[in-house]
Nucleic acid binder design. Structure first.
Lengths: 104, 104
DNA sequence: TCAGAAGTTCGACGATCGTCAAACCAACGC
DNA sequence: GCGTTGGTTTGACGATCGTCGAACTTCTGA
């Protein structure tokens, strides 16, 4: 579990990258869950995909700067970088979270 | 130039699809241009890609429901579906357009 | 009538993506 | 120590994507 936990600084957040990160059903599910429940351990989100795939999606979100990951023992606690996103792209995350349609 | 000009209805707009459509540098350039300049003919946006590629990107935006295309002779006039997007995803487009960073 | 212009469509290509199983690593509990 | 648990990494796979040139369609203007 080397895990650099590399997260971009606020000023390095790239809109294209963030939109790409959000433009996936599984990752959108993760983001919604984090928005509702606050910080979550990586594994406690039900996604219907394998461990490896889940890890991959969390990595994409983290590297896009959407989430913050805190290591604690064997667990990783993941949370939304709401303030950072709001500072860099005001209103964006709110708009994405507002959408109820996609809950299915 | 068969061109169905198929555009989804407001209630059929899908967040994932829209975010995917916006998550590309070229298409983001198009959207910004349309936001600034209003309706534009397809070809009058400088993108640095071939005719075929440009046509492809316009198609993606249209089918995602981001743009409206009006045929007039050999030209296609493309415009942002601002109202529809605002109704379906309040604040989303505004947030995307707000970003100045990406102008390069 | 016919040449040209505006867009689309059709392969084709390399690159990236989402997915998985399997192997791996690091911490915890016994 | 040792097995277990939570998560990552590593290929590998098929699918999708962005790109192009070339052929095509449709309209326009001389």
């Amino acid at each position: 579990m080397t895990a650099d936990l590399h997260e971009p600084a606020v000023e390095d957040l790239d809109l294209t990258t963030v939109l790409q990160a959000l433009g996936d059903p599984v990752r959108l599910t993760i983001v919604r869950c984090l928005a509702d429940e606050g910080e979550r351990a990586c594994g406690t989100v039900e996604l219907g995909v394998s461990k490896a795939t889940r890890s991959h999606h969390f990595k994409v979100l983290r590297e896009a700067g959407v989430t913050h990951t805190r290591a604690e023992g064997t667990h990783r606690h993941v949370s939304l970088r709401r303030d950072d996103l709001e500072r860099r792209f005001p209103g964006l995350l709110e708009a994405v979270l507002q959408d109820q349609h996609a809950a299915v």
